[in-house]
């Protein structure tokens, strides 16, 4: 064993006055680590938050292609289908006519569709798509991917059916079918009556 071999009586007294416990500086260092841990925990739980498949639909604002801005809250009292799409996505093309048909058939009864254009390479491509399929419901480009992140959308197409009270009731991944969604819409509209 090779360590300090000097006999006890040669040892010096304590070099500095012994402190009871830790100094303020020490406590602040430890506090900083604790704060960092809390921040990491917040970040982790935010990351782990999944898609809003039920409960209140996250609020957002969307700037439409036509220029004005709308908010989800504006449509409280109506059934809303929130549809995420992109022009380069084949299933989005598949469902485009179905979506427009749903809009035409139920808009009078208190239903609307909000289309969120995501990951589009240029706004012109989105506008071309809208023109090609004769889309008339609200559509806007998702600025800085805010809405996409809010709804944890992984790839188009994804759709959320939101009821009149602003709660998410259905989630569809992949292209939607007219029949499936119309049944759900009618169910929600019936609830309110």
């Amino acid at each position: 064993m090779k360590r300090d071999n000097t006999p006890d009586f040669l040892q010096p007294g304590p070099a500095q006055p012994k402190r009871k416990g830790l100094s303020l500086g020490s406590w602040s260092i430890l506090a900083a680590v604790a704060v960092a841990a809390v921040l990491l925990a917040l970040q982790l739980s935010e990351r782990n938050r999944g898609r809003p498949l039920s409960g209140p639909a996250p609020e957002f604002e969307l700037k439409l292609f036509e220029g004005r801005e709308i908010a989800l809250a504006d449509y409280r009292g109506q059934v809303v289908l929130l549809n995420f799409w992109a022009s380069w996505c084949p299933p989005c093309r598949d469902e485009a006519l179905d979506l427009q048909a749903l809009y035409n058939d139920y808009r009078g009864a208190g239903f609307t569709i909000i289309g969120v254009n995501m990951l589009e390479s240029s706004p012109q491509k989105a506008l071309d798509f809208i023109e090609e399929f004769g889309v008339t419901y609200y559509n806007g480009e998702d600025q800085e991917q805010r809405v996409t992140n809010l709804y944890r959308v992984e790839g188009p197409p994804e759709s959320f059916l939101i009821d009149q009270a602003g709660h998410v009731r259905q989630f569809y991944i992949g292209s939607i079918r007219y029949d499936t969604v119309s049944r759900a819409i009618e169910g929600l509209l019936a609830e309110q009556r």
Binding site: W88, C89, L119, E120, S121, Q145, G155
Partner: peptide
């Protein structure tokens, strides 16, 4: 824009290819 920390020139997803075209 989808997968974090992957440079655009490496990413071969449809979205990234569309972007490179643009």
């Amino acid at each position: 824009p989808v997968c974090e920390n992957i440079p655009l020139d490496e990413c071969q997803t449809t979205a990234c290819l569309e972007w490179k075209d643009e």
